[in-house]
Computed example of a mutant assay.
Amino acid sequence: MNRALAGAIAIAALAVAGASAAQSLRWPDLRDRPRDAGVDAPARRIAPRTVMTAGDGAAARLRLVPADDAVEAWVDNLLAGPIEVVVRAADGASPPSDPPLPARGSIPAQSSALLARVAHGHPRLQVAVVPGSPNARPRDVEYAWPLQTGSLRIQQAWGGGFSHADEANRHAVDFAVPTGTPVLAAREGVVMQAEDGFADALPGDGDAALPGRANFVRILHDDGTMALYAHLQRGGVLVEPGRRVRRGEPIGLSGNSGRSTAPHLHFVVQANRGMRLQSLPFRMFGPRGILRFTDTQAVQAPAGR
């Protein structure tokens, strides 16, 4: 999975001309990968792409509202969990504002915040959004096996060379699994974000024909960390945002959506470390005992060791 998915940063540029403007932001975006490996694609060093669409998976909305002596920049959090945002000028030089741009803030679940009051005119602003609170305090938790299977096959583990080298996915794991396999919550939490409208990749698709986005569920844990379950099949999300799920509860069906060359589940635990997502090491109890991952492979040991 590349930076756009794991980093989950969306940018929108909006202008105001005497009336309020609004757009929605969404992610993830999965890009090219080698065709001979059923894993996520390697990240490309590209600038964030402007995405302004509404619907399931929307993250936030920037509203520029004319006031008596300024234009107010409001950001609406559309997720069932906190986000962190930065509002800045889109054209380089920042217009006079209170506070000065760039303006940064955290917004609780499904609420709004006034980030800045910008001097009158036609300001062009952009907003960067990262899910989660920068105040997350991860606890040492043993995660449950996230698949309704009795077998284990890992296609790419921590530090995988295809696409697990960036900070947001360094400790991600790709579990090979047939399409339609039930995906289970590895830890109790609240469904923060979900998307299931994208088609699976088809056998024989060339890189250019592969769908660009993956279906996923993001679950917020009580300590502020988040688990991402990605590459679900189209229509394969079984839970709605805002719902609290138990450990072991079905949350989706595995698939091959996004830039994926074979069906698999991409699982990663992340925390917001101040406008950036960082993947976290985790322990997991697998089909045959405790799973201990390294940066190059997954090692299984009997329970209790």
Rank of each mutant, 00 (worst) to 15 (best):
G224I: 08
E195T: 09
A209E: 09
R244I: 00
R213V: 04
D222S: 14
S260M: 13
M226Y: 06
A194E: 01
D223Y: 00
P203H: 05
L238T: 10
A194W: 00
D222F: 06
G235E: 04
P263E: 10
L228R: 10
S257C: 12
F198S: 01
S257E: 06
D200Y: 00
G224A: 11
P263D: 13
H231L: 09
A262F: 02
M192E: 00
V268M: 09
D205C: 02
D196Q: 04
A262M: 04
G204E: 08
H266G: 15
G252D: 11
R246G: 06
G255W: 00
A230M: 11
F216R: 06
A214H: 00
G242C: 15
R247L: 05
R247H: 05
H266S: 14
A262N: 02
P250F: 03
G252K: 03
M192A: 06
F267P: 01
L232C: 09
D200N: 15
S260V: 12
P241S: 05
H231A: 07
N215R: 03
L238K: 13
G242R: 11
L265M: 12
R247E: 06
R213K: 14
R243L: 15
M192H: 07
H231E: 09
G258Y: 05
D223C: 10
R259S: 15
P241Q: 01
N256I: 04
R218A: 15
R247C: 01
L253P: 03
L220S: 05
L210K: 10
S254H: 03
R234F: 04
Y229S: 12
D200E: 11
L228N: 13
G235F: 00
Q193E: 02
G248A: 08
P203G: 06
M192V: 00
I251S: 12
L202Q: 14
L232K: 04
R259C: 11
P263A: 15
V237C: 04
A227P: 06
L238Y: 08
D207I: 13
S254D: 12
R247P: 01
P250C: 07
F267A: 02
M192S: 02
E240S: 13
G204W: 04
Q193N: 04
R234W: 00
L228E: 11
A227V: 11
S260T: 12
